[in-house]
Amino acid sequence: MKTILKTLSLCLAYVLVTFQVQAQDSTAVQPQRGDLDFAAKAMARNAFEIQAANIALQKSQNETIKHYAQMMVSDHTAAGEQLTTLVQQKNWELGKADDQKYEQMIQQLNDADAASFDQLYADLMAQTHTEAIELFKQAAEGNATTDNELKQFANEKIPGFQSHLDQIKTFKPTKMSTDIRDSVPNPKDTTHKKPLPKR
């Protein structure tokens, strides 16, 4: 009888320990609202950067812009894959972030003419990378994001975003844009009209 009771006690202890370990593991991967919000926003922002860069690769004739856009595709594709893997490993389900602002920016890029495209793209990249640095700093250093791996991901990406921002801030439009504008005749400009022949 004592042997049976001892065996039951050991089994009960094992079950309790196993339950506690499983509970700890489950708690460890449970996301907070801030974790899900940041991950969804980061995903949306990353997708925008790639889409905008692909438009730049198609529309721009400026080698500096094209090189920068190719870097955006490469860097943000890698970042997106890293974040996707992290989210999948934790079995998180992300909601759809508000991407109306990004849709409007994409429309601006699609509608821009050749003379204004490069400067518009550079301005948008400066804006979105400034915002990205602030978002990722909040995730890395703030209290809203609690998952350590997610905070580490955010912290690791900040130097790269800062480098992207610094590079695009140095962009100056080439003379090509001016040449394109000058090649379009102004109907009110009479300086280039040929004089009427004398009778």
Rank of each mutant, 00 (worst) to 15 (best):
E103G: 15
E103D: 15
E103H: 15
E103I: 03
E103F: 03
Q104M: 10
Q104E: 15
Q104I: 06
M105S: 12
M105V: 00
Q107T: 10
Q107P: 06
Q107Y: 05
Q108I: 00
Q108S: 09
Q108M: 04
Q108V: 00
Q108W: 01
L109F: 07
L109K: 08
L109I: 05
L109T: 07
L109N: 12
L109E: 11
N110G: 10
D111Q: 15
D111P: 08
D111I: 01
D111Y: 01
A112K: 07
A112S: 09
A112N: 08
D113M: 06
D113F: 03
D113Y: 07
D113L: 07
A114Y: 00
A114E: 14
A114P: 00
A114N: 03
A115M: 03
A115P: 02
S116P: 14
S116R: 12
S116N: 15
S116D: 14
S116K: 11
S116Y: 05
F117E: 07
F117K: 06
F117P: 08
F117W: 08
F117H: 10
F117C: 06
F117I: 06
D118K: 09
D118T: 05
D118C: 02
D118H: 11
D118I: 02
Q119S: 15
Q119M: 12
Q119L: 13
Q119R: 15
Q119G: 01
Q119K: 15
Q119A: 13
L120F: 05
L120T: 07
L120P: 13
Y121G: 04
Y121P: 04
Y121S: 01
A122T: 04
A122P: 12
A122R: 08
A122D: 08
A122K: 10
D123F: 05
D123W: 04
D123C: 02
D123L: 07
D123S: 15
L124I: 12
L124G: 08
L124F: 06
M125V: 03
M125C: 10
M125T: 00
M125W: 02
A126F: 06
A126R: 15
Q127P: 04
Q127D: 13
Q127F: 08
Q127H: 11
Q127L: 11
Q127V: 01
T128C: 02
T128W: 00
T128S: 11
H129R: 03
H129F: 03
H129Y: 05
H129T: 01
T130H: 12
T130C: 00
T130A: 13
T130P: 01
E131C: 00
E131H: 07
E131Q: 11
E131D: 14
E131F: 00
E131T: 02
A132Q: 10
A132L: 06
A132P: 14
I133W: 10
I133H: 13
I133V: 15
I133F: 02
I133M: 11
E134T: 12
E134H: 12
E134Q: 14
E134K: 14
E134G: 07
E134I: 04
E134N: 13
L135P: 00
L135H: 12
L135V: 01
L135T: 09
F136W: 10
